[in-house]
Write a protein that binds this DNA or RNA. Sequence first.
DNA 1: AAATACCCTTAATATAGTTTAAGCCCGAGG
DNA 2: CCTCGGGCTTAAACTATATTAAGGGTATTT
Lengths: 219, 219
Amino acid sequence: MLRTRLKVKLFLFQLLVYLNHIITLPVPINKLFASFDNYLPLDAEEREELRERVTERKIKRRQFILQESDVCKHYTFVAEGCFKKFQVDDKGVEHNLQFAAEGDWIMEIDSFYADKPSRVYIEAIEPSVILQIKKPDLFYLFTNNPKFDRNFRVIMETRFVELENRILQAISSTAEERYLSFINQYPHLFQRLPSTQIASYLGITPEFLSKVRNNIAKK
Amino acid sequence: MLRTRLKVKLFLFQLLVYLNHIITLPVPINKLFASFDNYLPLDAEEREELRERVTERKIKRRQFILQESDVCKHYTFVAEGCFKKFQVDDKGVEHNLQFAAEGDWIMEIDSFYADKPSRVYIEAIEPSVILQIKKPDLFYLFTNNPKFDRNFRVIMETRFVELENRILQAISSTAEERYLSFINQYPHLFQRLPSTQIASYLGITPEFLSKVRNNIAKK
DNA sequence: AAATACCCTTAATATAGTTTAAGCCCGAGG
DNA sequence: CCTCGGGCTTAAACTATATTAAGGGTATTT
């Protein structure tokens, strides 16, 4: 009888520690768990499965997590900070393909799945904290639990829809329309990013973006 | 003894029928099977599983298989012919987001998965034969056999890479460069499609494409 | 076979976006 | 403290692309 009460107490204590860990401390892994809550939330056991396969890293501003001609070895989840993914053309000009801030995933999918050398760079725009998962671990999760599969599938679909929208804009809208739509869709990025980075994302020169902003202000 | 030989004969006969069916006749479903051979080929049983869940349709030129504000109910595999997926802007101008010819898949992914009204049209450019699969059937295949899952995932990844390349081009290349790259990447489409459709895909006017072609010819 | 719609081209003019160059402001590093 | 580089802006000249309008050819429909 006494032993039972002791066990209960111990259990409650552990529970408390666990809850504290999960709820009150804003540790990076919790942001990852939270991000799945938008789709199919993970239970305690699944969270543990995921936690075991994920590596946390701190990244400095201007540090690269992927360089051209390297193979992309990880899916990267951004817990804090912000990254850009870009390609460099023959003239040395950078073209931003994607930004990834807290809660976003970033990787070079072609390089990752086909073990090809990457044609893009991924660089931290701010000091950041990331969680990375390697291919074998990701595949383990895919095959061992359909919930992971479904979750990562939805992440891809979401990106996919974003990409198609961006293409539509690229082939049908003026620079001003694209800029306004960017502000509207990514207000948190708009505040944090230097204009020159946004210009590169929109496919225009910084000088012209300046003019566009000026025109908008005049209205 | 006699019965056994009869059984063997019967079996061989059935096998012959099957092989004839699979190999010699270019029926639409075989194109679908063949398309999986690029990834993880399906065995006889899996083919049967797929065949049971797929509906064949003949589509006339200019016929729509998806209209704006309808919900996209199918993944569509093109066995013969060619389709375009496009959005219409406020001025009534069409903007081509995708072409799909033999061996390609086409659908409005956002509408399909989220049961949202579609913002795009999908229309046959040529008389076509398609194979369609509905959401519950697709999900059945996903959950019941990882090979389907993997195959459809790879199809998505491939499209994904194409989209990112197209965005890169849109933000970093001139119309002439994009046109040449289109010809290079999709020679079969270039031959079949009217220039005006290609112009819409590249995000330029037909008049300007005409000029671009002229410039290229002069060189 | 005629009528119609579509497709392609050309050219003049207008607009959107780039290039080059210069100057200003501010934060980081010596 | 100074200086140096990055980011932002302006403006003039230039280039890429759109718009408008017109004409000719070819395939589709009547």
